[in-house]
Amino acid sequence: MTLESVAGLYNYWVVIFLMMTGFYIVLARKNLIKSVIGLNIFQTSVFLLYITMGKVEGGTAPIVPPAIAAAQAHAAHGSDAGHAATPHVEGAHEVAHAALQHGGELASTTTEIIYSNPLPSVLMLTAIVVGIATTALALALVVRIREDYGTVDEERILELDRGE
């Protein structure tokens, strides 16, 4: 275990600590609402795990500056159609020229900016929605259970069930 690997991995460890705290809240459930909250914390921490994976050193959010994007779209079109396109975006003149000179090799222009990986973000957008759907369903069940049993305390519910 070198210092370097500690520096490279401590982020994950913090995330693991967070996940496990959430997991603990679910398992040590005493109150139905609180176990839903635990589930929430657990899932949110998993989102953090994914997002941490996508980050790259010195990178930026995977949003191509609009000027460059427009220019490159033009360049792609231009080389497809076989004629030089005039970029509409004023500020992008320089970049557009560069892109045109490179022809189809679009990759070379993007290497200047490092982008973090967009895929984990996309997956987590889906997972967040799945998470809120689960929470909503769970809370609806809690409301229903409370109507039927008159309490949201797990122990008391089990006692009520045994007692009848």
């Binding site: 459930r29 176990s35 369903l137 769970a138 069940l141 809690v142 259970i145 039927d148 049993y149 069930d161």
Partner: peptide
């Protein structure tokens, strides 16, 4: 509903 909740968790 209780069984469903336990399954959900």
């Amino acid at each position: 509903p209780l069984a469903a909740f336990q399954y959900l968790i």
